[in-house]
């Protein structure tokens, strides 16, 4: 039996627009996705913002009712058998909310242990174990309002693991964490996988998915556009070379001109404080550089590198390559 099964899952959001002449606008968040996650697998759902990642997780964690299709966890339907699903899953949503800030970490954990119907003796032992696991031992009696973002996120991990769930949902767990905090959390995730947990991870950090996941599904506009191991996904762009150009102040029309070159497969831009990194995917490689530089004549160009494609490049190709990847960890 699969740990997670999704069949033709569809979710449409309805928004009312207008004050006097009101009409309903429909937004398709999930457009019939299907996938399976095996027990003990660390499965990644990768996609840009608004692709449908969080919607998928919220349906799987029984917090949202799908418009169509079916989803089950360990054989239990997430809508009709939500009561059977909840004791078997744990979940973390990115961000700092979801904790009682006026209470201590220990009070928060005791509260959730009761909500998961844990025996008081078992919960006391488990809380100590988890505080040690997430590195909060010694700080457990402090109020959460005094915690750093990373500490709150680690407390979320402890909360999600309290009842020792078989399946864990981690929705962008490292979002907003500093590099050290993110690295520590990734190690915790690896350890959990080592314990045999099934983990469903959503992220838009490619290297994170590459480093952690057994298999990755790439989702875009509510559809799964690829599903494979990280290595095989990288194979999607094996025929290409990536030209990385450091530029200062590139105008959007110029990016469109580069994208329109006949041998260019995809173009993306990573924004840093003063510079941008223009990433051009093409089968041509270095032969294409003079042509790109000709188009960039008004912009200041720094370092130019031609390299082998990575998982991120495969991702850019799969989701269309038209996004500015502003967040770089």
């Amino acid at each position: 039996m699969n740990a997670i099964e999704i069949r033709n899952l569809r979710r449409v959001y309805r928004a009312t627009i207008g004050t006097l002449r009101r009409h309903i606008r429909e937004v398709v968040a999930l457009d019939g996705i299907s996938l399976e996650v095996r027990p003990g697998e660390l499965f990644g759902l990768l996609g840009p913002n608004g692709a449908g990642k969080t919607t998928t997780v919220k349906i799987l964690t029984t917090l949202l009712i799908p418009t169509g299709g079916q989803a089950s966890i360990l054989g239990f339907d997430v809508v009709g058998q939500a009561d059977r699903v909840r004791p078997r899953i744990g979940f973390i949503f990115g961000g700092e909310r979801g904790l009682y800030w006026r209470l201590s970490a220990c009070d928060n954990l005791r509260y959730f242990a009761d909500l998961y119907h844990m025996d008081p003796d078992r919960s006391r032992r488990r809380i100590d174990e988890l505080l040690e696991l997430v590195g909060l031992l010694g700080r457990e009696d402090e109020k959460v309002e005094g915690y750093s973002r990373g500490m709150r996120q680690r407390l979320h991990v402890a909360r999600a693991l309290l009842h020792d769930p078989e399946v864990l949902f981690l929705d962008e767990p490292t979002m907003g964490l500093d590099p050290v905090g993110a690295r520590e959390l990734r190690q915790v995730i690896r350890d959990l996988k080592g314990q045999g947990k099934t983990i469903f991870l959503t992220t838009h950090y490619m290297f994170e998915a590459d480093a952690l996941c057994d298999r990755i599904a790439v989702i875009n506009h509510g559809r799964i556009v690829a599903l494979d191991t990280p290595e095989r996904l990288k194979g999607y762009v094996r025929d290409l070379r990536v030209i990385e150009l450091e530029v200062f102040g590139i105008a959007p029309p110029v990016i469109d001109q580069v994208r329109a070159l006949p041998t260019v497969d995809a173009v993306s831009v990573e924004d840093f404080e003063q510079k941008q990194i223009l990433l051009v995917q093409s089968p041509q490689g270095s032969e294409l550089i003079p042509e790109i530089l000709r188009l960039l004549d008004t912009a200041r160009v720094g370092k130019v590198v031609v390299r082998e494609p990575t998982l991120e490049d495969a991702y850019v190709r799969l989701v269309g390559g038209d996004r500015g990847l502003a967040q770089v960890d």
Partner: peptide
């Protein structure tokens, strides 16, 4: 406070 989802997600 963002805790409603956490509560509803418990048994």
């Amino acid at each position: 406070y963002g805790t409603l989802e956490m509560l509803v997600g418990t048994p």
